[in-house]
Simulated scan of single mutants.
Amino acid sequence: MMKKEPGKLYIEEDGQSIAELIYTDEEDYYDVTGTYTAPEQRNRGLAKDLVDEIVAMARENNKKIKPTCPYVPHAIRGSEYDDIRM
C-alpha cells in the first residue's frame, strides 16, 4: 500500500516500509533526493511506482521534478515526461 507523508512517499507491506522516495517540496518543483527499495523487494517496479506517484503530484500541482536522485532521470527519460522534467 502506497502512503504519503510530507517529503516522503513509501510502500508498505505487512506493516513494513519496503520502498521509499524522499523529496523536498519547493515552490515550483519537487526535488527528488532519494529512492530506496529493500534488497529483497527489488525488481518489482516499486521505485518506478513511487516515481509515477510524484509525477502525478507534479502534474496535479503544476510543478516540475528536479531529479537529484540518480534513479529518477532514468525513470523519467521518455518524452511523455517532458512536461514535468526540469
Score class of each variant (00 low, 15 high):
42 R>E: 11
48 K>H: 13
4 K>R: 13
32 V>S: 05
25 D>C: 05
22 I>A: 14
23 Y>A: 07
62 N>W: 00
42 R>S: 01
82 D>E: 14
71 Y>W: 06
13 E>K: 08
29 Y>S: 10
48 K>I: 07
13 E>P: 14
66 K>P: 12
20 E>D: 14
70 P>T: 00
52 D>V: 01
60 E>H: 08
25 D>Y: 06
47 A>E: 06
83 D>L: 01
30 Y>M: 00
71 Y>C: 11
5 E>G: 05
33 T>V: 08
12 E>A: 02
60 E>K: 11
79 S>N: 09
15 G>Q: 09
85 R>E: 07
40 E>W: 05
66 K>W: 14
18 I>F: 01
32 V>D: 06
42 R>Q: 11
34 G>T: 03
79 S>H: 15
34 G>E: 15
36 Y>V: 01
27 E>Q: 10
24 T>G: 06
21 L>C: 02
45 G>H: 15
12 E>Q: 15
10 Y>W: 09
21 L>K: 07
62 N>Q: 03
31 D>I: 00
27 E>G: 02
51 V>W: 04
24 T>N: 09
68 T>S: 11
36 Y>P: 07
74 H>E: 14
10 Y>A: 04
85 R>M: 08
77 R>S: 12
63 K>M: 01
4 K>C: 03
10 Y>M: 03
15 G>K: 09
53 E>S: 12
21 L>T: 00
57 M>F: 10
65 I>F: 04
45 G>R: 13
48 K>C: 05
71 Y>Q: 13
22 I>V: 14
74 H>W: 15
29 Y>Q: 15
41 Q>N: 09
